[in-house]
Write a protein that binds this DNA or RNA. Structure first.
Lengths: 338, 338
DNA sequence: TACGCTCATGTAACCGATTACATGGAGGTC
DNA sequence: GACCTCCATGTAATCGGTTACATGAGCGTA
């Protein structure tokens, strides 16, 4: 594979000049520049980014660690991060933590060794010593979607409280009083916050939520199914079930159809996290939609701010209710957009 | 950030010895090894993979270029590739070509500059000069999911012909004779092959498929919706519609419910590409399931074979029919697994 | 003509690892 | 005790770029 030295020889200039051409240094004559370009084409030269990174101490690479790429929420997040990064000339390495702290740490370690310029992490529940260490400034770090209490790092996330309040109002307006909520692990900021927002909203509407209606899942389909089954088997089952993420909603659909029940006639269903197919099935599923792509884009901008020495500010964007038919027919269909 | 030189000084040895410890070279004394480990811990040393790669000419990184991470099929593929690569000590850089040749080439270029050890590509329709050039041996290359005619490269893909024949038989058994097929672009091997398999199977069942029932989509939701609408508006609409991928099936669902039609009573629906939610909606959607994760894993193994100088053989795995209820009730439910 | 300034280009150190080869001490053999 | 072997460790070149600094050609001015 041709090196800069070969190009220099071919063009009859020094390696410094070739390097200048590569980096668009204006002090190179038009004529020399052309000779160098010709030489590069003739040799099919491809600059070695590894060598360049070693010297410049910059890889133009960002690391992104997400929960699971199979979750459409994270897929959309990853897609947005990649698009925005590419626009800025950066490459992204994605790591699937699979919601496991050890695997998250594996990627943190690998990405640090590869000297990524910055790290975007959707942290798992536990604060690991490694993440704690990195947060003290070893590399630029931004938390995405979730935060970790006790760790001071800029973060980009959605706030669902207003939307959750709207959802409770929506359910209330449709006549539902017995509402259950299946949250994510309480160790995750997203799990905790959604639970609190739900209980607050319920209280404001004068709804009494018995303890057995507030359940803790793990943001995976299996727990959604199991917990929904348990809820439906209660002596007094809830009239509406609100799942804390789209995967648990998937599981809930199973539990409901297993029992031969129909949505929304027999039980109402809503989900945090809107995903495309919610809008294409029957009945279409009411959900709280996060500005997922925008979160990804903003996260990239925040970390680029850190990289360029600008002040990095945390970002909180509002989620919004997308009322469809899975909680009952409202007559005036509020919104259907996907 | 501590370098190998600092570790050497701290441990009172030379950089060569530290390097030997890093690479598990057995010729280092137990005692020296411990001293070096202590020094690394004390300095919080992280080996610089960039420097290592420059010297060893290996990055232990694979590049993966897919159509779109938002498509669950590609997400699952990417996930499997990453898992298998991680198990072998490799990192994966994923590029979203967004089904555009120019963006595919952008990633090919970037990944080559970063000196990935191998390239896994789900090629877009066109044969670009760049891909053609790489295929001549510049870097190990394996095609995934799709192939490109005229380019000799090991490939890993699924063969759907048997499953498509089964699907046609299934539809036939349920009484459907007028079956439409919406394929992908004919420039893609997956588009062509599925169309041919469908027409062959239909002919074998003595079904006459009018030309207007065989349509070309673009593997995106919009075209599925548009084409399904057109099919349903025909003077003699099809009794069953078979979509060439899951996104077009999503669009078809819209077109059908827009018209107030019900599946499978008014029209039967089937899709190539099984995705998790097909099994959780009502009616559950009949689909042809590809061994997606296995494709991803095998692709990694093939490219590792190339890297280690072993003979690399192309892999073709069979897809299979997962008959559910969207084509009509069979009485004996054939299979429901997800 | 001599001097100085500008500017395109060249020379060489450097980034942080790996590794071929050199070195020298310990232990064995006669 | 001389010599050889083995083996743990050290020295220094190397990977392919970038860039601070040196150089010298060309030109203007007095």
């Amino acid at each position: 594979m041709a090196r800069i030295k070969d190009v220099a020889a071919q063009a009859g200039v020094s390696v410094a000049t070739v390097s200048r051409v590569l980096n668009d240094n204006p002090s190179v004559t038009e004529e020399t520049r052309n000779r160098v370009h010709d030489a590069m084409a003739a040799l099919n030269y491809r600059p070695n980014a590894v060598a360049r990174s070693l010297r410049t101490e910059a890889t133009r690479t960002l690391g992104l660690i997400i929960g699971d790429i199979l979750n459409p929420f994270f897929a959309e997040l990853a897609r947005a991060v990649e698009d925005e990064a590419r626009a800025a000339g950066y490459t992204v390495i994605i790591g699937n933590a699979d919601e496991r702290a050890d695997q998250q740490d594996h990627y943190v370690r690998t990405l640090l060794e590869r000297r990524v310029d910055g790290l975007l992490i959707c942290p798992t529940a536990e604060v690991t010593p490694l993440v704690e260490e990195v947060s003290r400034g070893e590399r630029p770090l931004v938390f995405l979607d979730r935060t970790l209490s006790g760790i001071e790092v800029p973060s980009v996330r959605a706030d669902g409280s207003t939307a959750i309040a709207e959802l409770v109002a929506h359910l209330r307006a449709l006549g539902h009083r017995r509402i259950a909520f299946v949250s994510g692990p309480s160790t995750l900021s997203t799990g905790r916050e959604r639970t609190e927002a739900f209980l607050r909203a319920a209280a404001e509407h004068g709804l009494e939520i018995p303890q057995e209606y507030v359940r803790v899942g793990d943001f995976r389909a299996g727990s959604g199914q199991r917990i929904t089954s348990e809820l439906l088997d209660l002596p007094e089952p809830p009239q509406a079930i609100f799942l804390g993420d789209n995967l648990m909603a998937l599981g809930a659909l199973d539990a409901i159809s297993e029992r031969g029940l129909e949505i929304p006639r027999d039980v109402a269903l809503a989900s945090f996290d809107d995903v495309p197919w919610f809008n294409h099935v029957h009945p279409r599923i009411t959900a709280i939609s996060q500005p997922t792509a925008e979160l990804g884009r903003r996260a990239v901008r925040v970390i680029l701010d850190v990289l360029t020495g600008r002040a990095a500010e945390s970002v909180v964007l509002p989620a919004r209710l997308v009322a469809r038919e899975s909680c009952g027919e409202t007559g005036t269909r509020k919104e259907g957009g996907s």
